[in-house]
Amino acid sequence: MDTESGAFNVDFARKLIRFHFWENQRVWDLAIAPLTEDQFLREVKFLRGSVQSECQGLINTESVYLQRIIGASPVTGASLEGITDRAVIAARWLSLRQAWSTFADELDGETFFSRCEFESGGRRHTMAAWQLIFHVLYQGTMRRSQILRLVAELNQPAAFDLSLLQHLTGLLRE
């Protein structure tokens, strides 16, 4: 147990969730938005994907894992299969960001350590909510790295770097 009120302080987790969506937005605005439609959709063979498929994969993870944490049933995907319109994808991402933001605002120690049961690959699994949250955070870090690599191949290398500490300290290197 942590601290002032006697309750577990999850402020650090809140900060990490906010960082995840802040950095998603930064990648979208500075790296994805400048792409042409063709660049956004084009598959880069040696990287096994396109910017569109990476965005779709991350949005799906954020959607499915949030549902698993809050106990939604049945859990449904983000329904972006075949969607190529960036405005639609951006709107879906924004609504997910808002849902996660509400979740983060209301997050407490009890929810953070609660056990979440879900089905995946035909099997039942039980994980702690914090493990599901960190799965999303690490998927985000990996996917954003992959997106910037794709953007460098399709357009030009991004002129900014990805860093948790720059977000937490506000010391950005543009």
Binding site: T141, M142, R144, L164
Partner: peptide, 14 residues
């Protein structure tokens, strides 16, 4: 500590 966790994850992908 989490900066290092995040940084290593980013670079494993790279």
């Amino acid at each position: 500590v989490f900066q290092v966790f995040n940084h290593n994850t980013l670079h494993r992908a790279e």
